[in-house]
Design a protein around this nucleic acid. Sequence first.
DNA 1: ATGGCTCTGTGCGTTATCGCACATAGCGGC
DNA 2: GCCGCTATGTGCGATAACGCACAGAGCCAT
Lengths: 269, 269
Amino acid sequence: MPDSPKVIAASSLAANPPTQNHLLGALSTEVQQRLFPHLELVSMPLAKILYESGDTLRYVYFPTNCIVSLLYVMENGASAEISVVGNEGIIGVALFMGGESTTSRAIVQSSGYAYRLLGQRLKDEFNLHGELLYLMLRYSQALITQMAQTAVCNRHHNIDQQLCRWLLLSLDRLTDNHLVMTQELIANMLGVRREGVTEAAGRLHKLKVIEYSRGHITVLDRPKLEKLSCECYAVVKAETDRLLPYKAIPSATQKSAALHHQCKHTLYL
Amino acid sequence: MPDSPKVIAASSLAANPPTQNHLLGALSTEVQQRLFPHLELVSMPLAKILYESGDTLRYVYFPTNCIVSLLYVMENGASAEISVVGNEGIIGVALFMGGESTTSRAIVQSSGYAYRLLGQRLKDEFNLHGELLYLMLRYSQALITQMAQTAVCNRHHNIDQQLCRWLLLSLDRLTDNHLVMTQELIANMLGVRREGVTEAAGRLHKLKVIEYSRGHITVLDRPKLEKLSCECYAVVKAETDRLLPYKAIPSATQKSAALHHQCKHTLYL
DNA sequence: ATGGCTCTGTGCGTTATCGCACATAGCGGC
DNA sequence: GCCGCTATGTGCGATAACGCACAGAGCCAT
């Protein structure tokens, strides 16, 4: 097992309070007090696979500053991204929806950290009080919206529009305008050829919307990116904001800060 | 309001016990006793819209022998089916997931009947006991799987394969091998041109898999249809069966039959 | 600095699907 | 029986994306 605990760097913990995840931050102090002591900060390196299609899930993950893609991989190896999860969400909804596994893969698309929680701890909390469950369900509804819109987008929109949508979804989950991501990987996510992404990215570059080089992309003009994107981005954004009007809590409150230090000080790599 | 109650035809009620819906049939007698008196049998004519994108949902619907499509309609009028629901499921998961509305339209794709239930009644039952909630969540997980697979299918598979998948999904939700459905409507569901469906259907006809004429399709060779379909059908079917290993109860048990007559004897058209 | 690897750019023939136009066919109503 | 409507069939040029091949360009390690 690669799950050997390591002593966490104090700086990592300090830079990644649990409340940086919108869902964890939106919980009442009471629930936070019960839950936070069971959270474990884990490193989320690029391309790490949290689970494969069919795996029995043990943990749910609450990203603080990483991005995880839910990816479906077909029998012939072709793939398509189903949805993307950052600090607004949770990975592993199948654990509380039932079935304990999914037909997709969860893979880190942008490195960072996440808090993980044993599925059983989550369920224990569900049984104590409805608050956490209801929040998880609202997030699941937002996830459903994103999946549905992905299906529509795959049917009707061209690569240029989808690339814009994809960049915006990533941007919303990052603190700056810089992505570490090759065109090859973007192509895997969108389920298109790498060359198609190269051409679309070239056009965006010509329009001075982005600049990029060897696995690094910088967004220069976000408003223009939104104009060039299909409606799918805005639809998902609006619905997510409606369902989850929570923002990250950048500087933790006194109380949250105290709870924060109750998280297990171990780092799982 | 077109929701004026009518006295139900006794034959319709008898032919459509609530237990014909797999979810309702899978409930314990105790929960059935509480829930069934609040169920209302409603007629589901072809093309009836149960709700539009953004509508606040009042009812959930449990189909007995009809099929309902969840359809996304874009700004320019183009559309794409997100998922399909028959007697294995429920329409209106957003009512209990949260948000009380969705970005899609629910439209009857194959006429028949369904039982509807006030959203509040559903929530009342959730608060009494977890059984119904857990069942609903398992179904929601199956729905998520179908949406995800639709996204993949839209990306990677051709019209012929998708038509086969679509026919199989419909077939599974019907009692016979006969669909009332024009190629134009199928095209709307798949989000492709009508001519594309005509050509694909022509090829299936040449292979003696289906025969059809003016809004009627009969499947002649289901095994061949499954062979011609992409993997998407089988994946969704397997996952749904895993999550919801429930079958319709064709002849209601003594107890269920008694409960059955407690349903409101009104028919909403 | 050089070789090797990865990432990006480009060309080209092929294919699936589209958009449009129009022809044909079945069915119901009068 | 005929009209009109709707459903289905077909042809054709346009287009977007594909598969493949290969060229250049940046970065790293030895």
